[in-house]
C-alpha cells in the first residue's frame, strides 16, 4: 500500500494527522514486573515494547558455556547483555524471526553498546546486566522504542548512569529520487512512513547534542541529513522530558506512600 504523500503539501498534515514536528503519544510505566530488578513498559504510538533488567549480578557457574561465562566474569567492568524477542503477532505479517536473525543481532548489539556507554559499568566488576526486551507490537521506530524502554528499566533497576539514553526517529517528506530541496523533515515516523520515506534513528545522551546511536537505512541526499538530524535530536529532548516525568511521578508516589524516605531539599542544605 503506497503512502499518499500528496496531502502533505496541501494541509501540512501527515497520514495520521500529525504535524511535522509532533511525536506520537508516548506512554510509559516503570516497575511493571515485581520479580525483576528493573522493568518498564513503553508505547510509542502503536509500537509497544516491554523490558526487564536483571542484575548487575555475577553469573553462576551454571550459566551457559564456560567460554561465555569466563569472558563476562574476567572483565573489570560489568557486561551489558541484551536480548530482543520479537513476538510473532507483533506485526501484520506474522513472520517468524529466528533468535539468530542478523537484524536482531544488530539491534541487540546496538542497544548494548549504547547503554554501556552511559551506564557506570566500572562500578560492577565481574557482573552482567541482563536486559531483555520484548516487542509486543510494531508500528515503526522500533529501535528507538527499544532504547527508551531499556533506559527506563535500567533507571528502575537503580543502575547508575551518566544520563538517560533517549531515541527517536526522523525522516524527510519526499523520497530520495525526488531531488526537491524544499523537503521538510519529519519527526517520529510510523510504519507506513518508515516504509516509504527516508528516515533515521537517532539516540542522544540526555538533553545534550551528543549522539550515541545514529542509524540510517535508506537512501537520502547528504544535504537533508542536517535537517533530519536536528529534528531528531530535538525529538530526543522531548522524549527525555516524558521519560523523566514517568520516573519522577513514580518516585514521588513512593515518597508520598512513605515507602522511601524523603529527600533533603537543596535549600536547607545551602543554609549550613
Amino acid at each position: 500500500m503506497p503512502l499518499d504523500t500528496s496531502a502533505y503539501s496541501l494541509a501540512l498534515l501527515r497520514v495520521d494527522g500529525r504535524r511535522w514536528n509532533e511525536l506520537r503519544r508516548i506512554h510509559a510505566q516503570i516497575r511493571t514486573q515485581a520479580a525483576a530488578d528493573g522493568s518498564s513498559y513503553l508505547e510509542m504510538g502503536h509500537t509497544k515494547v516491554m523490558c526487564v533488567v536483571t542484575g548487575p549480578s555475577e553469573p553462576g557457574p551454571r550459566r551457559g558455556t564456560a567460554g561465555a561465562g569466563a569472558a563476562g566474569a574476567s572483565k573489570a567492568v560489568a557486561e551489558v547483555a541484551v536480548s530482543v524477542v520479537v513476538a510473532g503477532f507483533s506485526s501484520v505479517d506474522r513472520k517468524k524471526r529466528g533468535r539468530n536473525d542478523k537484524r536482531n543481532l544488530e539491534l541487540q548489539s546496538t542497544i548494548a553498546n549504547a547503554l554501556a556507554a552511559s551506564l557506570h559499568t566500572h562500578l560492577f566488576p565481574h557482573s552482567v546486566i541482563q536486559v531483555s526486551l520484548h516487542v509486543l507490537s510494531q508500528d515503526g521506530s522500533l529501535l528507538a522504542a527499544l532504547i527508551n524502554a531499556a533506559t527506563l528499566a535500567c533507571v528502575d533497576a537503580g543502575i547508575p548512569m551518566t544520563d538517560y539514553v533517549v531515541a527517536c526517529t526522523a525522516g524527510s517528506t519526499s523520497t530520495y529520487a525526488a531531488g526537491d530541496e524544499s523537503a521538510d523533515p519529519l519527526l517520529d515516523l510510523n510504519h507506513q512512513e518508515e516504509q516509504e520515506l527516508p528516515g533515521l534513528t537517532v539516540a542522544t545522551l540526555g538533553e545534550s547534542d551528543r549522539v550515541a546511536v545514529l542509524v540510517c537505512e535508506s537512501r537520502v541526499q547528504v544535504g537533508r541529513l542536517e535537517g533530519m538530524l536536528a529534528v531528531g535530536v530535538d525529538g530526543c529532548k522531548q522524549v527525555r522530558e516524558i521519560l523523566d516525568r514517568v520516573v519522577r511521578d513514580k518516585g514521588k508516589r513512593m515518597v508520598l506512600e512513605g515507602t522511601v524516605a524523603k529527600g533533603e531539599g537543596l535549600e536547607d542544605m545551602d543554609l549550613d
Binding site: 533507571v155 538533553e207 523523566d244 518516585g251 514521588k252 524523603k262 529527600g263 537543596l266
Partner: peptide
C-alpha cells in the same frame, strides 16, 4: 519539574 516542590526532591539520572 518545577523548583517549588523540592520537599520531595526526587532526582533523576543526569
Amino acid at each position: 519539574r518545577r523548583k517549588e516542590d523540592k520537599s520531595y526532591s526526587i532526582v533523576t539520572p543526569g
